[in-house]
Amino acid sequence: MIQRLALAVLLAVAAIALLAPAIAPAPYDYQDREKTNAPPDRHSPMGTDELGRDRFSRLLYGTRVSVLLVPAAALLSVVLALLLSLPAVWRVPLAAPAVSGFTTISLSLPWLFLYIILRAELPLNTSPSTSVILTFGLMGVSGWAVPARVFTAAMQQLRDSGWVLQAQTSGMRTWRIVLVHGWPHLRSLALAQLRILVPVYILSEANLGLLGLGVAPPLPSWGNLIQDLQHPDVVRANPWVLAPLALLILVMICIECLQTSPDISPESSPVSLR
């Protein structure tokens, strides 16, 4: 019951995010200079910010950026991890120690430090669209290590399992074993990694936004929308400032409610070898 409710809430948030341009009363960057820091009214349900931009519209567009790009970043991490794990497991010379070494070093550096290093290599004064690609792209690129370790272990188990040995001795090609018989096992694992990474990236984007290293204004995201929390007087004057944080927490709780552990046992093949 709770899982269904959580799923319904997440779907509703995703639908609102997708329909943001149709629902929002104003574009996210439209400024009404005569209506700065205004309280909520009929035209601006959550009031306006210090530049006269409608908070409600910015929340809708910000939700769209976060809700669409966080899963994309998580998908990038999972795909990278899968691609890097494959040669390590299928006995490509030097691939295993190289991947293992880079995984260990990536895991030895806290994620935020790693992100900051990569971010410091790139220009900070970027356009909003570039900053979106940088923020979520770097998240996707730098988050491959944990899934790679999980995939490598699972693939090693698969490689050494009886049915893969049987398939190899039957003369089946490696790519066919991987795609037709290996992937169904790894699919549930990949989905589990996606489910783990999505909330991690939502929190990371929020942290980066508050630190000024995330998506650049005027493009809104949950991270830069909660920057207003640094000004307690603004929060006291207009509690709607807390709406992005409340929505973020609601989405996080719903994702937590959906978390279930998949069965990744490689003992039984879901696809018959015959």
Binding site: L109, P110, I116, I117, R119, A120, L124
Partner: peptide, 22 residues
């Protein structure tokens, strides 16, 4: 220090910090 180094794109400092934290 790491945050300020990243904002200032101070790579020697970022690299030193990364090595020590690693």
């Amino acid at each position: 220090l790491a945050w300020k180094a990243a904002l200032a794109r101070d790579l020697p400092l970022v690299a030193g910090l990364a090595l020590i934290v690693t």
